[in-house]
Each structure stands twice: as structure tokens, then as C-alpha cells.
Simulated scan of single mutants.
Amino acid sequence: MNAIRTSVFVGVLLACVATLGWALNFIAPYVTGDYSLYDLMAVRFLEVGVLGVGGVILCRAQLKWLSPRQRWLAAALGAAGCLAYGVCISAGVMFGGPVLTPACVGMVPVLLALVGNARNKAVAWGRLAAPLACLTLGLLLSNISSLHQPALSAVSWLAGVFFSLSAVALWLGFSVINQKHLTTLPATATGLWTALMLVGAGGTALCLLPLLCAFNLLRLPTLGFGFAQAGALYAWSLIIALMSTVVGAWAWNAATRRLPMVLSGQLIALESLFATLLGLWFHGRGPSLMEATGLAAVLIGVVMAVRIILTGTKPAATRDTDGSAEDDPQHRLTCTHRDL
């Protein structure tokens, strides 16, 4: 039991690291300087691809554990869950402002909790009501200030909604598919799986470069590639690439193996929390009373979810009437605890 609890706590810590890294996706529109968002995203994901190639080389001994189909799947997940998700997040912030996109992404923990518990019931639905309600209320309170922001044009607002909801859809699909396949892989293949995701994101970005150039969306060719002109762009691209993509992907994959989806889904709420705090920092102000109350409610909801899952790891309280341990959280955690 102690080993299982330790596994859950480590998983929670890793999930916090991943969500903090992912929150850096939301600052991309604020750090481009004279360059465009396309420049930042192109440089970032090309760097990600290079890091991924390095990871594959370091983990080449693990290639025997993955079939060709699994390698392509990992690359496709990277293209969708890293590149496409990052682009949608940045575009949502650019078109809809700093509040709309975090608010939409804040729906992910609630949706994943419902999907996860429906697919593999870890706790009774009644026990999830309080943390889900707390999370939902907190996310609404922390983002309701958007009603008082200067009005956006209808086209810009619709574009922000489209990209924000696209990010939600991409993340839901990524989470479900990634968790399903991670639990079937040997623990030794986790590093390679993550590296292949990075290669997929970087390879897709490389394939898109001719299209970006054809539509004159990149400012690097005109403003200059030198460090004197683009040094800040390179630095921010590398920071976001390392933290949001590399560290975030590794930490989430490691956390996924240790946590049932119903808990990992709750912890994704921290991404919205961190994104809101970073957005406020870039705007040079602190949270209002309503925003602070909402952020506190999010944290309370996450803590409640963790305690409920930890309490639910008692086998005696969760076994089926026929004595089977198949749906026991302890059994699931033991079976999925194959990470590094």
C-alpha cells in the first residue's frame, strides 16, 4: 500500500511539472517581439525535432520494444498533441485574448474525469461530485473577468473560440489515445515513445515550412536570422520547447503510468491555473478578488481529487462482489506503474 501511495504522490508531482511546462504555451504571443507567432512556432518545433532526434539516438536500444506501427503512432501523437495543440493554444490567445483560451482549456479536467471514470471506474460517481463542482466553479470565477475586457471584433472572437475548442478536442483525443497505448508498453520504452513524439512534432513543422514561406508568414527572412536581431526569439523558443514540449511530454508520460485517468484529468486543471498566473504576470498585475477566489477553488478541487483517489486505493472497499480485483484501483496502479 505504501508503494502505491508513493507512486501516486510521484505521479501528482510529475503532473504538476508537466502542467507548469505546458502553461508556457500561453505566453507565446507575448514574447515574439518584432517577429510573428509563426516564426516562434517554427523555430520552437524545429528545435523540438532536433531534441527528439537526439532522444531517439540515446534510446535506440529501446527500438526493439516498439513495432513500426507504434513508432508512427507516437510520431502522430506528437504532431497532434504537441505541434497542433501548441498552435491552437497560441492562436486562441492571439485572437481571443489571455482569458478565453485558458477558460476553454479549463474544461479538459472535467471532461477527462467523466471519460476516464466511464471507461474505467476508479471511484463512485458521487464522490467525484464535490471536486468536479469545485473545479468548475473555480474555473468560472477565475475567468469571468473576461466579460469586462475590451470587446473583441466578432471575427476575432469566433477565431479565438474555434482555436480554443480545437485545442480542447486535440488534448482530449491525445490523452485518451496516449494513455491507452502507454499502459501496453514496457517501462523501458517510455523514453523512446516521448522522443518519437518530439520527432513527429518537429518533422511536421519542417514539412510546413515551405507553406509558411509561400504565404510570406515568416519575418525571419526579412528581419534577420542573426543573434543580434533574433536572439530573444531563439531563447524564448528554446525555453518553451524544453519546458512545454520536452519536459512536459516526459513528465506527463511518467505521470500517466502512475495515475488513473480520472485523477490525471483533474490535475490538468493546474495548466489553466498556471496559464492564468503567467498571463497576469505578463500584464503586470495581480489577480482580482474574484480571480483569486477562483484560483483557490481550483487548487482545493485538485487536492480533494487527490485525497479521494488515495482513499480509493483500499482494496477491501473497492472489490467487486465476486472478489475480483480487476477494477480495484490498487490493481490498476500496480499494473500501470512501469515507468522509469
Rank of each mutant, 00 (worst) to 15 (best):
M1D: 13
I4H: 12
V10S: 05
V10L: 14
T19Y: 01
N25Q: 13
N25M: 13
V31H: 05
L37N: 11
V50G: 13
V53F: 14
P68T: 03
W72I: 12
A74E: 05
A74L: 04
A76C: 11
G81F: 01
L83N: 07
L83R: 08
G86H: 00
V87Q: 08
I89Y: 06
G92I: 03
V110S: 07
L111S: 09
L111E: 04
L112Y: 08
T136E: 02
S142A: 13
I144G: 00
L147Y: 04
A151I: 10
A154P: 03
L170K: 02
Q179V: 02
K180Q: 11
W193K: 03
A195Q: 03
G200S: 10
A201D: 01
G202M: 06
G203A: 04
L211H: 11
R219H: 12
R219N: 14
G226C: 09
G231I: 06
S237E: 03
A249S: 14
N253P: 10
L259T: 09
P260D: 05
A269C: 07
E271G: 10
A275M: 10
L278P: 06
L280N: 02
R285A: 11
G286S: 02
L289A: 13
M290A: 12
L295Y: 08
L299E: 00
A305V: 06
T311D: 14
T313V: 10
A316Q: 12
D320C: 03
E326T: 11
